[in-house]
Simulated assay, not measured.
Amino acid sequence: MNYLTATKNKKYLMYISQNYSYAILRPIQAAVLANGGEVRWFLQGTDVNPSFLQSHEKQLNSIEEIHEWSPDATFAPANLIPTFFPGIKVAVFHGFDAHKRDTDGEKGHFAIRGCFDLYCTQGPNTTKRFAKSAQKHGHFKVAQTGWPTLDPLFSKTTDNPYKSDDPRPTLLICSTFSHRLTLAPRLYEKIKSFSTQGKWRILVQFHPKMQTEWVTKYKALSNQNLTFVETDNVLPLLQVADVMLCDTSSVMQMFLVQHKPVVTFCTRQPFPHLLDVTQADEVEAAIEHALTKPSDLMQNIESYCQELHPYTDGQSSQRVLNAANEFLQSNEKLKPKPLNVIRNFKMRKKLNYWKW
């Protein structure tokens, strides 16, 4: 396929409902524009901030405008997407499977909701599951592409606002927002003590849905040793950190693909590629051990990454675009999507769109 010709003059819609989705879809946008296509953005709901759009990014403000523009494909890092949009719908995921719940069968990360025509999977351990579902249902296709979000992670750019001449190791602390799973309250006193020790340069970044109470308390810890970061793009933080402390947030997988160690606190499912602890008093020793990069741990991380996301070439966005274009050109007849009457009614009500 001539990929430049396949993309040229085609229209691609970026559909987002959370601020972190900007960073997920912008690498795909860059691939589209580099190959002569057009891009528009649709921001759904109040959780996404339109001020984060860059000056060259063009927004569609209504479903009517989407139909008038008539995209060939819509990319969505979401579980759901309106089936009444023109063109094919492409799932690119908002994260990795973080094992926060039982995901046997078609649950959690692997749920099939009858919205998408194409799933662009991140690596073998997701491809196998979605390919099995595709064979079962017959109304969508699967292409293993890698996750476009990570493309900038493997770039050689030196423009990183968190890069520092500080000789101390950099510890990145990330946490999910779930009351049941978050480390924020359970490790607050321990992290407070770390902030006064000065052994490490500490960066703290929480999920955007983290409770305000804990955001406020951790912000108050900020000093010359600890910086609380609020951002819609976590990748620069991942690049500069030497080790991560996390719970069950899928951001840990984004860190691991760099072949860097992660210490987890009471993670949902401990694995040999993680250093998991269950007591606050065990955290400091685990971080010190992780910083030595023990050979058995690093070998386990290598094996895990080959299944999770084997791509380090920064070209996953181009593979996603290629997969979408191949789908558009194939004219392959798939089974009709399920009607999903209740789900589609709720989506129409949410978007206040009743035309057929």
Rank of each mutant, 00 (worst) to 15 (best):
Y15I: 01
Y15T: 02
N19V: 05
S21A: 12
Y22K: 04
A34M: 02
F42A: 15
T46H: 11
S55C: 00
N61C: 06
I63C: 13
E65Y: 03
E68G: 07
S70M: 03
T74R: 02
A76Y: 06
P77W: 04
I88M: 10
K89S: 09
K89V: 06
D97N: 15
A98S: 14
H99E: 15
K100M: 14
R101Q: 14
G105W: 02
G105L: 03
E106I: 01
G108K: 05
A111Q: 13
I112L: 05
G114M: 05
F116L: 01
Y119E: 00
Y119K: 01
T126C: 12
F130K: 01
A131T: 13
S133Q: 11
A134Y: 02
G138I: 05
V142E: 03
V142M: 03
A143N: 06
T149A: 10
D151N: 13
K156W: 01
S164V: 02
D165M: 09
H179A: 11
P185C: 05
P185A: 07
P185E: 04
I191W: 06
I191P: 09
G198I: 07
W200F: 12
R201A: 05
V204M: 08
Q205F: 12
H207V: 09
K209H: 13
Q211P: 00
E213L: 15
L221W: 08
S222E: 12
T227P: 00
V229S: 03
E230Y: 04
D232P: 01
V240H: 10
S250D: 10
S250N: 13
P270E: 06
A280Q: 06
E288C: 10
H289M: 11
P294L: 02
Q306L: 13
Y311M: 07
D313E: 10
L321I: 05
N325Q: 15
L328F: 08
L334N: 07
K337E: 03
R343W: 02
M347Y: 01
R348K: 14
K350E: 15
W354I: 05
